[in-house]
Computed example of a mutant assay.
Amino acid sequence: MKNRTNRRLLLAAIENTYGDDAAPTAALNAVLTRSISLTPLAGEDVQRQLDRPYFGNAQTIAGEKHVELTVEVELAGSGTAGNAPAWSPLMRACGFKETVNAGTDVVYDPVTGAEESLTAYINRDSVLHKFTGGRGSVSFTFDVNNIPVMSFTFKGLFSPIANGDMPTDADFSAYQTPMPVTAANTPAFTLHGQALSFNQLSMDMAVEVVKHQVVGNSSSIEINGRAPSGSATVEEPDLATINLYEKARNGDLGTLSLTHGTDAGNIVQIDCPQVGTGAPTESDLNGMQMLQIPLTINPNSGNDEIRITVK
C-alpha cells in the first residue's frame, strides 16, 4: 500500500495536566488545516568521537527526541459571538489566555508563565504520530485578495509512531468559511491612529519554545520568552497625514488596529498598543508607490502587546 501525502488529519486538545494525553477524537477535536508539516524525530544525535588508527565514521547514537509540527489554519470566527473559535486550543498552547464573554466576544491575551499545553495526533494516511506537552508560536498573514492565515509551529514530547486507521468521523462543522482580505471584508486598519490602505500585513509572535531536558525530572517543552514583530506594506500616505519616515527616525510608538470581517460571529480584531515602525522600504504595486514598514510589537504594562478579539 502506498501512503498518500494528501491524506492527513490533525487532532488537538488542551491537556488538563501537563504531559498527560488528552486523547483528542476526530468527532470533537479535528483541526481543519491547509498544510501539515511534521518532523517526527527532531533533536540532536550524539557523536561517539572515537580515536582509531584508521579513517571512517564513528557510531552516531540517537539522543532524546521530540516532535516538531508546522500547520496552517484559516483565520475566521466561531459563527456565534461569544463562542470560542474551533482553533482555540492551538492559540492557547502558544502562550495565550482565553477569556470568554458570553454572547459578546472571546479575547486572547498573551501570558507569562502557566502556559497551557497541547496533545496532538497526526494521522498521515494511517501512520499515527502523537505528541503530548506541546507548546508553540503563531504568526498571522493578511494578504490582499487572499484568505487570512494563522501559521502555528509546535514542539511536543515524543510518543512512539504506530499504525492507526484514518478516522472517518472527523467533524469540521465548527470551522467557519473564511473571507478574503478585501476592502469590503477588512473595513479597518490603522497605524499610529491613522487609517491606511495596505496590501500586506504580517505579525509573528516569535514565541521562544525550548525542549527542557534533565536527568532526575521529566522532560518538558517550555516557553521562555517572545519577541513579536511584523511588517505592513501600505500605500504611501501624504507626509502631512502621517510621516512614517520621521516616526522611524524618532523611534515613535503608537497603536495598531485591524478589523477583519463584518458579520457578528465572524469578526476578528487585532489590537496592539505600542508598535514601533522601522525605516520604510519603497516598492511598486500597479504603478502605485508603496512603503514596506517593519513593525516591532511592544508591551505597554505587560502581557498586553497584542490582543485578538473574536466577536
Rank of each mutant, 00 (worst) to 15 (best):
A62I: 12
M179D: 15
V207F: 03
P273V: 03
E246Q: 14
E44D: 02
A206T: 14
G278L: 07
Q289W: 01
G276C: 04
E44C: 00
F55D: 15
L128W: 04
D238Y: 01
R48E: 14
E64V: 12
G133Q: 13
T132Y: 05
R226Q: 12
V210I: 14
D109Y: 01
G113N: 12
G136K: 08
P148A: 05
L239C: 08
H260E: 08
N266E: 08
A22E: 07
L38D: 06
G156C: 06
V181P: 11
Y18L: 12
A248G: 13
V149I: 15
D20P: 04
N298D: 13
D165L: 13
I297C: 05
D263S: 15
N145A: 07
A279L: 14
L9P: 12
G63K: 03
G133L: 05
G251T: 09
N303C: 03
A76L: 06
P167V: 04
L239Q: 12
V100P: 09
Y54W: 04
Y54E: 11
I242M: 09
I297M: 00
G82N: 07
L75N: 04
V138W: 00
S126L: 03
S78W: 05
S137D: 04
E235S: 09
I61Q: 07
F158G: 02
T5E: 02
E64Q: 14
T259I: 13
M91V: 05
R124G: 07
R52D: 03
G276H: 00
E235R: 10
S37C: 01
N6A: 11
P53Y: 00
G216E: 03
I161G: 07
G19N: 07
E44L: 00
P280K: 02
F142C: 06
R226P: 12
G136L: 01
I270D: 02
I297W: 04
P299Y: 01
V106F: 02
P89L: 00
D271I: 08
S218M: 11
N303H: 05
A174E: 14
Y175E: 04
Q269Y: 01
Q194R: 11
K155Q: 14
T112N: 08
L11S: 03
F198R: 10
L285Q: 13
V181E: 08
G278E: 01
V138H: 02
N217H: 11
L11I: 08
M205I: 05
P228D: 02
T177R: 07
Y54L: 02
Q200T: 11
V209K: 08
P187Y: 01
N250K: 12
P160K: 03
A12R: 12
A62V: 14
P40A: 02
T70Y: 00
N185G: 10
V100M: 06
R249G: 05
